[in-house]
Design a protein around this nucleic acid. Sequence first.
DNA 1: ACCGCCGGGTGCC
DNA 2: ACCGCCGGGTGCC
Length: 975
Amino acid sequence: MFSKNYGPSTGYGGNRTYSCYSSGDVDSALGFEDFLYTDDTSGTDEDLDLFVLFGNLRGNVVGLRYYTGVVNNNEMVALQREPNNPYDKNAVKVNNVNGDQVGHIKKELAAPLAYIIDNKLARVEGIVPYGAKNAFTMPIQMSFWGKEENKQAVLDRLKMHGFKMAPPLKGSELGFGSNLLSGRAGPSYSAPGHTAVQMTTEQLKSEFDKLFEDLKEDDKTREIQGPEVIGTQLLPHQKQALAWMILRENNKELPPFWEERNNFFYNTLTNFAEKERPENVLGGILADDMGLGKTLTTIALILANFHNGKPLPVEKIRCDQFYKVFGATSVKNEGDLPVKDHNCNLESSTSSGKSETVQAQLSSFYPERTKAKKPKYSERSDSEESEEWLPQETRTSCNFQEDTGFASALAAPSPALKKKAKQKGTSSIQLAKRDDSEEGPRTTLIICPLSVLSNWIDQLEQHISPDVHLNLYVYYGPDRSKDPELLSRQDIVLTTYNILASDYGSRGDSPLHKLKWLRVVLDEGHTIRNPNALQTKAALNLEAQRRWILTGTPIQNSLKDLWSLLSFLKLKPFADREWWHRTIQRPVTMGDQAGLRRLQSLIKNITLRRTKMSKIKGKPVLELPERKVFIQHVVLTEEERQIYQAVKNEGKLAISRYFSEGTVLAHYADVLGVLLRLRQLCCHPHLCTNTSSFSGTGVNNTPEELREKLVNKMKLVLSSGSDEECAVCLDSLTFPVITHCAHVFCKPCICEVIQSEQPNAKCPLCRNELRLEHLVECPLEESDFESVKKSDQEWIPSSKINALMHALIQLRKENPAVKCLIVSQFTTFLSLIETPLRESGFVFTRLDGSMPQKKRVEAIQCFQSSQAGSPTIMLLSLKAGGVGLNLTAASRVFLMDPAWNPAAEDQCFDRCHRLGQKQAVVITKFVVKNSVEENMLSIQNKKRKLAAGAFATKKPTASEVKQTKINEIKTLIDL
DNA sequence: ACCGCCGGGTGCC
DNA sequence: ACCGCCGGGTGCC
């Protein structure tokens, strides 16, 4: 059903197909999208986690002499079906870790294997115990993995062909095969005879939690001064990050799990060896918490570690030299040298005896630098600087600049320049000269969610001093240039995931994919955690020398989330999912300690992670003011209560009917509808206008009526704030369509499902029949407008609005300058609130999902302004903006209605409780007494606990998921 | 493959 | 000899 194809057609993972991986299974695809739970723990992935080891079988690989792929003793190999082989349709290829064919499985064995693989009865993995030095054939140890229910079929099929699988040996459940081998196993595996140490789920969980915790190492605590052209002083932890990033970009070490052994490069996980040196990632994951300044740090990196054409020579030498001198040598000799001294600039260090060496060494690379006195900014700004002061040089030289106040003395960009930078298209923030004769990529591509696009532009103009000639191109909007030449002349190209994906998807005219970039930065990089999403594929297919992932949440729910990230980083051999899964994911999820250690060392190697709680030199990285959350109960008026009870009783009746019929989940949209109406009534009676859509779901509708009904349901689902995600891709809905069974999916996703299940496609959620022609699309939204108008006409207050207004007026009395966010999931509610705000003379602004980007930026800037007369209130729709949204001007938050997902609430609070917040933040949650809202709170609490403990634990089974949902519905409606 | 298998050459010792 | 035996050709799927 959720057909997956890890083959070449997906364009990632190398040019190989792993048919055993190639598809999910219909029966297991029970990943209901969570309408109450919004995480994706019920993933629709291949259910590899449910696979067990059936057993092992010895076989032979033949035809070695026809292929170039070579293998080591004990090397892992991949088995790949080759149905189009002209000699045998059952052919099964054997490939080494690099994807080079080694041989074929001998045909007698290939026959049952082909059947097993083609019917997805098992995944078959191989290890060649005596892989080296075979001319014609070699043995192969195969392990069979699959779902318990398929085990017998596998055994039977093998038996039919005269093969008998050996049952899994005790202690070999982890499937590394090492115990099976009579020869000596690879060094990273437990020695033969010893069983791998397995951990309990509890242990595993706590290890996981620690995975990304403050990864401290020497090379991560060193600081480096920000480039002079950054007009802002970097915070200490940002300097550390910068130093670490520069180090990573000039990384000459072997990637993790590789060793050099007698002229070969050897992978200790797979036992693969090759002559060619495996490339390390020149980059990694900057996994700092939100608000620690990943953007600024990255801007500093772009300026500080500029590539000047030839493949890395200047920076490399510079950096190696830098670290050799300041990092390793000095620190070692002088013990705990204050970190700041590592950053000493050329001039100041020459005064000390020790540093003379430094100067000598450096000057051999940069004779002109040490001879010429550094010109003052004012002197050199326009003089085109003759000689040695090439623009690139200026940019990279910042590594050695002491912070002398020189940087801070730089002028802020002129308003004209600011304006220019904001326009789409090329904008030259500065005027200096650049050398266009340089070769090789020079452009950094930054991809971010649309919501933070303007933040990047702001920060670029804010922090880059005017003496830098920086070409920025915002690759966005319908008029974006598709000319790769133009893009390649930029220093920074900024775009969004949506643009990236749509360019990639639309016939090959994506200039982003034609270029080789100096550097690609994925901001909010966890956006690509779903390997099947188009944006992920598009990102994985970018070519770049250096690759960065910026994210506050590197692992959201499961280890699986990491794979796309690693694949993007092109860490051999993990870009190929099979090796990632066999060497890390499966061992870890099965509780193998060695596997966890591998994972830890991998993460440690490529990640810098600091949380808001992290400390640097004993001080917290971020000293955020306090944050308090109050729950304020609201009592409905008699009148409101009557309406509420009426709707509740009606809904309760319908839902109990579904329960007795056992069709609760099939009437999913209706249940959601009832709950939505109740939640709306808690806010304001006018929110609940579309009662018509719920009046029985008779099947005998004319198509037009049915269509209308379905469209209404879909709108309901989409606007219900249930945080709906597509059950197929687990991402937010794009091109939502609704099925006749009233479930909403992304159109492309569900079409793929239907296609792959021809002719009897079933709904992934309720197993009802599914037909392409029955999908109903969502018409363009105009609904918001109408309801706003409607509510304007006959305005009445509500208990909640009264409670809010009371609090606001009280607050204004105490402090008229204080700024508030008023947050709701219902934009109509926000509109209703506008009326009393106006009446009471509040100046307010508004931000919701329906606003075009330009208006949003305006609203944010306006609200953030400290000028007298600027708005003191922002009406904010809960999910507007996304993580990057910075509303630190506010110190009070009024959350008008509880969200299904407490994480969404927290994220919203973080918009003002973040770097830059100077005051204590007070949050007030309005909750109606004796209502669905109270019940939601208790579910939120459960969910919080679950989120804290869910990581790495086994995915709940389909029936557990169902039961949970059913229980939640019962809780919510008091059944 | 220092095998097995095939099929042509060959045929007392 | 409708055999045995010899030795060259050959060899994945």
